[in-house]
């Protein structure tokens, strides 16, 4: 599949949730996603990584229109979709589908596997019931399931098979983009590789683009075209997968990838350990949001939020020192 053009574009997207700790406390807002710029290109796999609670899943839900954005714009193939309603929303939803992490809760227990896969086609209409049946059988075949199992209920399948059903449903409308929210992290190691290979094959055959959300770095670095690293609601570094793995520029990315065990136990491996906890999204630090845990933070980081620093046309990092080394002469914090 050739890469040509962006299909999904996020501009300065933010999502705030308003919370109240006790009935008398004032309302405060959690900035779950805080000014994200992101594009998904046609035919690519964009990996989105970050710790739990960094806003990756919220971002996915914004893209899937399960939440509405607080501010910012989302456009799909040039059409603005973040405020789409009615027919425009339906048209958008036909083209963007999802596969979730837990294959045990993402399939309705009271529907047969065939009904689950057929549902998006039934809802969108246009096919006779015979055509739908044929298409379901075809989809079962595509994802490596026996079409004779259409009448079975989800609990009769294993985790990997359930995820195959979920994928079959996801691709049933021939979407352009599939949002994969931790698609393999609930599966056994041996099954993971099979599902990842299936996803790769489908991408090649159907020309799909993937947004892969995961905290499994080896998986992400193996199958993604580009990787975006998220911290406290913002993309702090984004670039081609090979560059991000081999030459990360943001200290957070460095720490994240240094936590992955090397393939050989005796290989040279230096771990960067981060101190402290992720700050609460209720209380995002001034300046650079990573400075409270950053090993190279200086005074400047406290007052001046880092601008998007382009390392090259395709690689961005939000750190003052993404290119230059920090000047540690005297002004070290």
């Amino acid at each position: 599949m050739t890469v040509n053009g962006d299909i999904l574009q996020l501009e300065d997207v933010a999502k705030r949730f308003s919370v109240r700790r006790s009935p008398f406390a004032p309302r405060r807002s959690i900035r779950a996603v805080d000014g994200v710029n992101l594009t998904v290109r046609s035919g690519e796999t964009l990996g989105l990584v970050g710790e739990s609670g960094c806003g990756k899943s919220t971002l996915a839900r914004l893209i899937l229109k399960l939440h509405d954005v607080s501010t910012g714009r989302i456009s799909f193939l040039g059409q603005q979709v973040h405020d789409a309603r009615g027919r425009n929303l339906s048209r958008y939803r036909r083209q963007v589908q999802a596969v979730f992490q837990d294959p045990f809760s993402s399939l309705s227990p009271r529907m047969t596997a065939g009904q689950i896969v057929a549902e998006p086609m039934i809802v969108n209409g246009g096919l006779s019931s015979r055509e739908t049946d044929e298409r379901v059988a075809d989809l079962f075949d595509k994802v490596g399931l026996n079409p004779a199992w259409m009448e079975r209920y989800p609990h009769e399948f294993s985790g990997g098979q359930r995820q195959r059903i979920a994928i079959a449903r996801g691709i049933s409308l021939n979407p352009k983009l599939l949002v994969l929210d931790e698609p393999v992290s609930a599966l056994d190691l041996s099954v993971r590789a099979q599902i990842l290979n299936l996803l790769k094959d489908l991408q090649r055959n159907l020309g799909l683009s993937y947004l892969l959300i995961s905290h499994d770095l080896p998986v992400v670095s193996r199958i993604c075209t580009r990787i975006a690293v998220m911290y406290l609601g913002r993309i702090v570094e984004i670039g081609p997968a090979r560059e991000i793995v081999a030459n990360p520029r943001h200290p957070y990315t460095k720490a994240l990838f240094s936590a992955v065990l090397p393939e050989h136990p005796r290989a040279h491996h230096q771990r960067i350990e981060l101190e402290g906890e992720v700050p609460s999204p209720l209380d995002i630090p001034s300046g650079c949001r990573f400075r409270t845990r950053c090993p190279i933070a200086v005074e400047r980081c406290e007052v001046e939020p880092p601008a998007n620093l382009m390392i090259n046309s395709d690689h961005m990092a939000e750190c003052h020192f993404a290119i230059e080394k920090p000047n540690h002469g005297g002004e070290l914090k």
């Binding site: 309705s108 549902e119 998006p120």
Partner: peptide, 24 residues
């Protein structure tokens, strides 16, 4: 998940209520 995916598949509220929630 299955209710959220029903929304993603553009099911109407009525369909979600009668096909996904009520049977359960």
């Amino acid at each position: 998940g299955f209710v959220e995916l029903a929304k993603v598949a553009d099911c109407s509220h009525l369909r979600i209520l009668t096909r996904h929630i009520l049977p359960n």
